[in-house]
Every structure is written in C-alpha cells, then in structure tokens.
C-alpha cells in the first residue's frame, strides 16, 4: 500500500519518530500500528531485535512526500492553463510560475493589477480557488498553488501584522483582551509568531471553523 510504511528502531518510540521524520508528518496525521515491540537484548547487545511499526497516513493528509506528484508535469500544466486564464483577463499580463517548498507559486505581472485583485482580493481568491481545484483533480499535479500579484498578499499580511501589533500594545496598556477578525490558519500563525515576541502579551486562537480568530491577552 502506498500510504502504509514500515519503520524499524531500537524502541517503538524511536521507530515512530524516525518514520514521522521520514514522511514529514506529525503524529496526529498518521495511524500507528505496532508490528513488533522488539527486544532490548542482553545488556543491549546480544539478542537485540529492533521494534517494528507501521505508519498509515490518514486520508487526505498526504504532504510534500506524495509519490504521485510529477513536478515537471504540474509546472507545465500550471503554465498552460494559467497562461490562458490570465491572458483572457489582460492580454498583456504575464506570470512567473515557480516551485516552492509547499507547492507552486504564481506571480502575476500586469499593468493593471486591480483587474486581478478585484474587490477586497475577491478575484485573486477566485482564481486561486479554481486553479487549485483543477490542479488537484489530477494526482500527478496535486500540489498547492499560491497566487500573488505584485506582492499584494504579502503587503496585506504585513498590514494585518501591523494592526495586530498596535492592538497588542493597546491590550498591554488596558489589560483588556481583544479579538481580531476571523482568519485562515496560515494568517493566524503569522500573527501568533509576530506577537509572541512582545513582552507581557499572549495570543490564542478561539472559535471554530471559519470564525476562528486570534485573541490577544495580557499575561
């Protein structure tokens, strides 16, 4: 089975650790089955048998190590489809498509970037959504696609972090907790990271699903 893999180690624990590292997954993303607990052997020398475990990747959580992904194919598919898509919005637009750590990044270049951004980033979001949907239909190109235009998203994130920092200072002064508006996990993570550095301030995520948001409190 493609998403089941065996690993050996001195102990069950170390075998699991080794396996997770190799698959680049967290413990909650796999099911662990112990095949053999192993034996420490006499003085850890004689008759020692390694522990054997099997890790099964839980559905849908396959990550970077997905063996089906064909990067060359993914990139050419992205190039072909996306080239057509952006050209239909702006004939003179171009895109730079690159592989990054987690998938493919597309940077759009256009004389009129507002065409691609839309109202509050709606168009950019729609393009990204459709593009991801299409790429993920084929196992060979099941990669995450990130879209940006002239650093729009990066700028947006910077703005949010700046606002969060201002709020953090306010919380520090007043001692009263404040909640930010709901955000996706990736953005929340960036805020947590940016704010935990501030003395006397703590951040947690509260709420469920699409209303999950960052709460800034005084420690």
């Amino acid at each position: 089975m493609r998403n089941k893999k065996e690993f050996k180690g001195k102990t069950v624990e170390s075998a699991i650790k080794k396996g997770l590292k190799k698959l680049d997954l967290n413990k909650d993303e796999v099911n662990v089955e112990i095949l053999d607990e192993g034996k420490a052997g006499l003085f850890g020398l004689m008759g020692a048998e390694p522990a054997k475990i099997q890790l099964e990747v839980k559905g849908g959580s396959r990550k970077k190590t997905d063996p089906d992904i064909d990067w060359k194919y993914s990139l050419s598919r992205a190039e072909e489809f996306f080239g057509l898509l952006i050209k239909s919005i702006d004939k003179e637009a171009a895109s730079k498509i690159e592989k990054n750590e987690s998938g493919i990044s597309v940077d759009i270049k256009s004389g009129d970037s507002s065409l691609f951004i839309g109202k509050e980033g709606d168009t950019l979001k729609a393009l990204e959504y459709i593009f991801n949907l299409i790429m993920k239909r084929d196992p060979r190109s099941r990669v995450n696609v990130e879209l940006d235009i002239e650093g729009y998203k990066k700028r947006k994130v910077k703005d949010i972090i700046r606002q969060a920092k201002t709020i953090a200072q306010k919380v520090k002064k007043s001692g009263k907790s404040e909640e930010l508006s709901p955000m996706k996990a990736s953005k929340r993570k960036k805020i947590h990271k940016a704010i935990t550095g501030i003395d006397g301030i703590d951040t947690v995520s509260v709420g469920e699903g699409s209303s999950r948001r960052v709460k800034i409190t005084k420690t």
Partner: peptide, 11 residues
C-alpha cells in the same frame, strides 16, 4: 466554484 467562475469571468 460557480461563484468563483462568475468572479473570474466578470474580471
């Protein structure tokens, strides 16, 4: 999905 298609087409 259809909403996204509409957004793209209108852009």
């Amino acid at each position: 999905t259809i909403k996204s298609i509409r957004t793209i087409v209108n852009a």
